[in-house]
Amino acid sequence: MAEFEPKIVAFLCRWCAYAGADLAGTSRLKYPPNVVPIRVPCSGRVEPAWVVDALRQGADGVLIGGCHPGDCHYVSGNYKARRRVYLLKKILPELGIEPDRVRLEWVSASEGKRFAEVVADFVAELRALGPIGAGSDASRVTRDEESTALRGG
């Protein structure tokens, strides 16, 4: 069987992490093609609901990339992002999602290499975790299907 290729949704702040991803591209660095980048104004703009939405819609992992501490274009958005991810990771198991599927990383605009490394590392970790929802055949059913199934037995 072909190796499992995890799908990653990456919310990248436009000032640092997205620019870092760009640099990785323009410097022709190789990194796994598993990432779908989404540019956001700031890591502090990323809502926990978006992260869970991405995971519920089939992403195997979500990467949030922001500026290093002290470098956020909006001063403290990345600190807010950190607190959100901290709480999110506490509640994810309760929602049936492994917390390791969410990663927050600081990547500056000049760190193309670091971006490539972060992605490679995350892909390896997600490969080890396996596809989201595996191991429970009920995990992909919609609420309607679920209730019908429950009523059937």
Binding site: E47, P48, A49, G70, Y79, R83, Y86, I91
Partner: peptide, 27 residues
């Protein structure tokens, strides 16, 4: 989703003094 909306709000409100790397453990 009330839980996710609430943790988003709580994370925005929590402060342990001046924001910065030193404040992280207290946060």
């Amino acid at each position: 989703d009330p839980g996710l909306a609430m943790i988003s709000a709580l994370a925005s409100l929590v402060r342990a003094g001046e924001e910065g790397e030193e404040a992280i453990p207290k946060e």
